[in-house]
């Protein structure tokens, strides 16, 4: 299985972004997705800056994919989208059917996690349009994926979101601006102060969600490092790690070591849990509510 680093879902300062990808270049990750996928107003990195990062990572041997915005609402959003789909060099991850239309039968592309591919018919259709990899919707279970892959079309790889706060929902409303009592059009880009989003607690103090501009995420960190055997057995080709503000290098190395069986699964689980901003969860993969943490088969044997 290959390791993929998803696009950064948060708004980080330019210096942090550049330092981050310098660090990533030296990690054992094979695929790197780059670009702003959440908010069209965020601007510390323009397309030429992303292309610079892409070239640096490609020179370091990474497969680079440019990710597109998930919510495309206006003509100016479409203009930015076309600049990416027509970049002429790097592959593109389509996060909206509008992007698929611009890429179909022209450029090989990755079908992103927001395209709602839930069955083999839709997967075959997307593959016939030129998708060479697809990212499973986060809420899909191992069982559903397994039955889908029984009729998987030839020549398309499967990628599964496997680490990080889950991207659960998009709105046109900015929840970070709302928290600050500011209109979205005058948001002052305050999400730059929340490198992992802002945690939302229930009224009894339990962490539940995280707000990241127009995106709502899980507070809990989705983590399938303990499920890597099952990912492999199901036929998953790539495992996506979604960047959090700290420890990406360590997380990537632990996943790599675990896939290559250089460390035991339980050791990896214990090591990685120390790095979370919140508790972990893996319910979706097990056909449960996403927030739940299913017990590992190995843990049951030992307890």
């Amino acid at each position: 299985m290959k390791l993929a680093l998803g696009p950064i879902l948060y708004y980080w300062p330019r210096e942090k972004l550049q330092a981050y990808y310098e660090e990533i270049a030296a990690t054992p990750v094979e695929i790197v997705y780059l670009g702003e996928t959440v908010c069209s107003r965020r601007h510390v990195m323009r397309l030429p800056d992303w292309l610079d990062a892409a070239k640096m990572l490609a020179a370091a041997g990474k497969e680079v994919v440019l990710s597109t915005l998930s919510l495309i609402e206006s003509e100016s959003d479409l203009k930015s989208l076309r600049r990416i789909t027509e970049n002429g060099h790097f592959a593109v991850e389509a996060n909206d059917m509008g992007a698929v239309r611009l890429l179909a039968r022209r450029v090989p592309f990755v079908a992103g996690p927001y395209l709602n591919i839930y069955n083999p018919q839709t997967l075959s259709l997307i593959a016939s349009l030129g998708a060479r990899r697809w990212v499973m919707p986060v809420e899909m279970s191992q069982e559903t994926l397994q039955s889908l892959l029984l009729s998987r079309p030839a020549g398309i790889e499967t990628e599964v979101f496997s680490y990080g706060r889950l991207p659960l929902a998009f709105s046109s409303r900015c929840f970070t601006a709302r928290y600050h009592n500011l209109p979205k059009d005058d948001c002052r880009f305050l999400c730059i102060n929340d490198p992992d989003g802002k945690t939302v607690h229930t009224r009894e103090g339990k962490p539940f969600l995280a707000i990241n501009g127009i995106q709502t995420q899980s507070a809990q960190v989705y983590n399938l490092i303990g499920d890597l055997d099952s990912l492999q057995q199901t036929g998953v080709d790539a495992v996506r790690i979604s960047p959090q503000s700290e420890h990406s290098g360590e997380v990537i190395r632990l996943f790599r070591d675990c896939i290559d069986q250089r460390v035991g699964r339980e050791h990896a689980v214990r090591q990685i849990e120390r790095l979370f901003p919140e508790a972990g969860c893996n319910g979706y993969w097990h056909g449960r509510p996403g927030i739940e943490q299913a017990i590992l088969a190995s843990a049951i044997q030992h307890d």
Partner: peptide, 18 residues
């Protein structure tokens, strides 16, 4: 939320619109 792009319900309960 953007309809079709919301998994909040399945995150808490296992069942979503999609």
């Amino acid at each position: 939320m953007v309809e079709g792009r919301c998994s909040l319900s399945s995150y808490a309960t296992g069942e979503s619109p999609n």
